[in-house]
Design a protein around this nucleic acid. Structure first.
Length: 867
DNA sequence: CACTGACTCGTTTTT
DNA sequence: CGAGTCAGTG
């Protein structure tokens, strides 16, 4: 997470800027000056240099500050030189932030930290140095998802697998998951490998890896996994790095996946002393036959296992993830100076392979670890912090922290209900305009949504209001089609064997080289075991192609020859311009009449501009896929619109949190798939959302929301119920009366004992209540909350639904899905909004109803009653 | 080979 | 509802 460089607004003395060169006034009597601004816990985290340290840094407690100061401390104490410190983050943004702050703190004293970067960029860097040891060349290409899928599609075809039933994307996801868990093709549990393509999943993974080597390419997962393999198979190389890195720092430890964990484990061991067999530290024999097959991802790591330990005895586990304490303890490393910073309450990437377990078990993994808690929050006012803390306290699997602030209570968190999502957007728009009138900077206003489809409504509204906004997070810069196309041209110039790149642009812009031609090139290439480009050269000489295609292909090849020749005498930025021009690519977009064509041309210019930072084409291509970041406009004043996920690490004075409804937030899908763990992750997401706010946090829920084009009634999120009423204020929607008079729906039961009774009496509450009963009144498809008819059940936990959704410890975690509709064709029904009608079509729980007045509509079945 | 109409399927996202 | 994919046609 990156704390903004901006200081907290409440003038906490601890957060004076560490102005002036630290290096200059090295050590004052009370210690170095850079320590002065720290509170005691932060200071301890900075100064405890020896042995493993876990810093549990709650939201807004100065985590990045601790990390950077710690590095400064190590350096100024002379404990290590810059290149002896390994410091890993997850995102480029975080890495950049740290470099920036470090630079400010140290002045020019220290030039660059070569080993400060993301897991992937550092893994990639190490891999390039030793590429040949993992069957690659040092200029290997890093594939993007698109290339990956294309490659897999080819493999599926070769295996004669129906890619309708077994989509390449799904396989890409599986392989990604395996790599996240540190599993090589041989290590994937056979049962799991079998679930794809009638048992061919494992085989496909293996042949995918083979193909990657042939293409001299690695995917993102490989940057770590191949790195791990490198270390395991080459103990001397590993030892070299263990020797080099005197200190290891890890940011966002709660987000690490198994592969990252294993990688850190390998590096964090002290190098073996003479006399200690290497096998004591590195398993190294993962390739031995007895280890093939179902090997537990973690026990397979086996780092630190004494040689006599029979790894083969490891019980294959049906689920390779759970790790027994005993195994982990057995694998106790020789402690090293590793410092991990994280917050278990902000772990929101479990679905992507992050293992909260890594942080929860730090003390097991690194015996003798010192755990330091940072609980002083310098960001949010009292009510906001209390609400967030109370909410997250509902989670069970936590290390436990209590955030506190010395700030004023400030404004209460507000909860506002509205009739539908449109009214919600209107209400928020008005509130933002009000804030603007009262002098708030729009840069200090953010809307955080659970899912990106929610954004549209706000965009529409803001456009009509003329309110400037920016969407944070969309597709990454280098993921855009035009950027990838341009890169593909450059890749083919740089490396003629890059089949994936060649295939991407053979017919972009259109040159009459369609599927048939490409297919034939493929055949040719496979037969002669040569890259596509070479195959094309050969084919052009024959008359296998129709004259038109043949001519076009020949022209293309000649162009590439020319560009390659020019490469020697032309600056790489200039070359890029020439290529885009001569290939007709620029022209293609200039002719395009669609709305975003202009933006794409801008992006291409931006790409060429960004090339200037690199020495040459080769250097640029090596870094592009790992380091390129979008960003761009941060200058103009605008409201920020983003998902909760991409808000992590940011903070704003005013935070709007719409869509707090069951099914949307917490997300029904997460609940269905992950059960209780999913619920807890959603709750952490809610916690992240609330803790982004400095002064104002505003929650919203709508009673009706259009999902997939059909209207559904929704009920307020259980997270609203979990807020402490003392810190929350229920407000009426200001969005006007979209429906039956004043909007405004009180939230449901607050789980604070004191005075929740009052919320029952508001008209809004009663209306929301009525909706609940109605939606529960029969059809299981939509009976979410499972409330009983009477309100009395609210005082207890969630009451149970008799129809049997997933209930754990009295808490409804997920409703069952896919239930059959209780309606039949031609049923006469009544709908609150549309009146009477007849069912004309049934699709699961979605009904198409011909209403007498409103015409034909699609509605979710719980929305209507049979009459 | 390119274009168009039918069809499906709907989180979160980094690198 | 609407973006993206796919098969069939000009």
């Amino acid at each position: 997470m990156t704390e903004p460089s901006k200081l907290p607004h409440h003038g906490v003395p601890e957060h004076q800027p560490a102005a002036g060169g630290i290096a200059a006034r090295a050590r004052a009597a009370a210690g170095p000056q850079y320590l002065n601004g720290l509170n005691p816990e932060q200071r301890e985290a900075v100064e405890t240099l020896d042995g493993p340290v876990l810093v549990l840094a709650g939201a807004g407690t100065g985590k990045t500050r601790v990390l950077t100061t710690r590095i400064a401390h190590i350096l100024s104490q002379g404990r290590a030189r810059p290149h002896e410190i390994l410091s890993v983050t997850f995102t480029n943004k975080a890495a950049r932030e740290m470099k920036l702050r470090l630079g400010q703190m140290l002045g020019q004293a220290v030039e660059g930290m070569p080993w400060l970067g993301t897991f992937h960029s550092i893994g990639g860097r190490i891999l390039r140095i030793h590429a040949e040891l993992v069957q690659l060349k040092s200029n290997f290409t890093v594939l993007d998802v698109d290339d990956q899928v294309r490659l897999l599609k080819q493999l599926l075809q070769a295996e004669n697998i129906d890619d309708k039933r077994w989509p390449a994307r799904m396989l890409a996801g599986l392989i990604d998951g395996w790599k996240n868990r540190g599993l090589t093709p041989a290590q994937v549990p056979s049962g799991e490998a079998a679930i794809f393509g009638n048992g061919k999943g494992g085989k496909l993974y293996a042949s995918y890896q083979e193909r990657l080597k042939i293409l001299n390419a690695a995917d993102f997962g490989d940057l770590l996994l191949e790195n791990i393999r490198l270390f395991r198979e080459n103990p001397d190389v590993l030892r070299q790095y263990q020797n080099r890195f005197k200190f290891i720092l890890v940011d966002e430890y709660q987000d690490t996946n198994v592969a990252q964990y294993l990688w850190l484990r390998l590096l964090s061991q002290a190098p073996s002393r003479p006399g200690v067999p290497l096998s004591a530290i590195i398993p190294g024999d993962l390739t031995s036959p007895r280890l093939r097959g179902d090997v537990d991802a973690r026990s397979a790591s086996g780092e630190g296992d004494p040689p006599q330990t029979e790894i083969a005895e490891t019980t294959p586990h049906p689920d390779p993830l759970p790790v027994k304490d005993a195994e982990r303890e057995k694998a106790a490393p020789i402690p090293k100076n590793i410092c991990c910073v994280g917050d278990d309450d902000q772990s929101i990437y479990g679905w992507r392979g992050a293992e909260v377990d890594n942080i929860l078990r730090f003390e097991h993994d690194f015996p003798g670890a010192k755990v330091i808690r940072l609980e002083r929050n310098y960001r949010s006012t009292g009510h906001i912090l209390a609400a967030a803390s109370h909410l997250i306290a509902h989670n069970e699997g936590r290390l436990g922290k209590t955030l506190r602030t010395e700030d004023v209570d400030g404004e209460k968190v507000t909860v506002t209900g509205s009739w539908d999502s449109e009214e919600e957007a209107r209400a928020i728009g008005e509130e933002i305009e009000e804030l603007q009138r009262s002098g708030e900077n729009l840069n200090e206003v953010a809307i955080l949504v659970r899912a990106s489809f929610q954004m549209r409504e706000f965009e529409d509204r803001f456009v009509t209001l003329g309110l400037p906004y920016r969407v944070i997070g969309g597709p990454r810069f280098y993921e855009r089609a035009e950027i990838r196309d341009a890169l593909a041209y450059l890749r083919v110039i740089n490396s003629p064997a890059d089949d994936l790149a060649f295939e991407r642009i053979v017919n972009v812009p259109k040159r009459g080289l369609g599927d048939a031609t490409v297919q034939m090139l493929h055949d040719h290439a496979r037969k002669r075991r040569m890259p596509l480009f070479e195959a094309a050269r050969a084919v052009v000489e024959t008359d296998e192609l129709k004259p038109k295609a043949r001519g076009a292909l020949r022209d293309l090849l000649l162009q590439f020859d020319r560009w390659r020749a020019q490469r020697e005498v032309t600056a790489h930025t200039e070359l890029a311009e020439i290529v885009l021009d001569e290939s007709g690519y620029t022209e293609m977009w200039q002719k395009d009449r669609s709305a975003d064509a202009a933006g794409r041309l801008d992006n291409l210019k931006e790409l060429v501009r960004s090339m200037e930072e690199f020495e040459n084409l080769q250097g640029f291509l090596e870094h592009i896929s790992l380091v390129m970041d979008r960003d761009g406009d941060a200058s103009d004043e605008a409201v920020s619109l983003m998902t909760l996920h991409s808000a992590k690490g940011l903070e704003f004075d005013n935070v709007f949190l719409p869509g707090w409804e069951e099914g949307l937030f917490p997300s029904q899908r997460t609940l269905d798939e992950q059960g209780r763990a999913g619920l807890e992750e959603e709750r952490r997401l809610a916690h992240v959302g609330l803790t982004r706010a400095r002064r104002r946090a505003k929650l919203y829920f709508a009673t009706n929301r259009r999902i997939h084009g059909t209207w559904s009634t929704t009920i307020p999120s259980r997270f609203l119920d979990e807020l402490p009423s003392a810190n929350v204020e229920i407000t009426e929607s200001k969005g006007g009366s979209g429906w039956g008079g004043a909007g405004g729906y009180g939230p449901s039961r607050f789980d604070n004992v004191e005075s929740f009774g009052s919320s029952y009496t508001t008209p809004g509450w009663q209306r929301a209540q009525a909706n609940r009963n109605r939606s529960q009144g029969g059809r299981s498809g939509q009976a979410r909350g499972g409330f009983e008819e009477s309100q009395s059940s609210f005082s207890g936990g969630f009451s149970r639904n008799k129809r049997g959704p997933l209930v754990i410890e009295g808490e409804l975690v997920a409703k069952s899905t896919g239930t059959v509709s209780e309606f039949s064709l031609d049923d006469r029904v009544f709908h609150q909004k549309f009146g009477y009608g007849n069912v004309v079509k049934i699709d699961g729980n979605k009904l198409t109803i011909a209403f007498e007045k409103a015409g034909e509509k699609k509605v979710v079945d719980s929305f209507v009653e049979r009459v």
